[in-house]
């Protein structure tokens, strides 16, 4: 039998999603999203170097509804990947493996990243004055 015709053992779909597994895949998803977000950063920097007209174009995009939604998404992705990344570093150092600890730090990452995102956008709008 060819390798790709072999039956598969029960996989992810037989498990009820848990906080720990959902946060784990979110770490990877936000990492991929941030890699895509680097395109926007490169565009912004290249446009800044190219001159005022190119820069105005990228700023117009960032200020549009789609641009703002993307930036909001990238903000949360960065905050979450950062908070959950710190959680991973603690695991790497051997701390926080007990299940109650893993849940506490998991909720901590969710709350901290959402709070930081809110803070960034509130301050951002306050600085710009709307």
């Amino acid at each position: 039998m060819a390798a790709d015709e072999r039956p598969l053992s029960p996989h992810l779909q037989v498990y009820r999603p848990q906080l720990t597994s959902v946060l784990s895949i979110l770490h990877r998803a936000t990492g991929m999203a941030l890699a895509a977000g680097m395109l926007l950063l490169v565009w912004w920097l290249v446009a800044a170097a190219a001159g005022p007209e190119a820069f105005a174009a990228v700023q117009w995009f960032n200020g549009s509804i789609l641009g703002r939604l993307l930036l909001l998404g990238f903000t949360w992705a960065l905050c979450y990947h950062l908070c959950n990344g710190v959680r991973h570093l603690f695991w790497d150092a051997g701390y926080g493996f007990e299940i109650p600890d893993a849940y506490r730090s998991g909720w901590g990452a969710v709350v901290a990243s959402s709070g930081l995102t809110l803070l960034v956008w509130i301050v951002g709008y306050a600085v710009r004055g709307g």
Binding site: G51, P52, A56, Q59, G63, V120, V123, G124, V127, R128
Partner: peptide
């Protein structure tokens, strides 16, 4: 955040 939406 500080320079957000800034001019060139």
């Amino acid at each position: 955040v500080v320079i957000g939406g800034a001019d060139h």
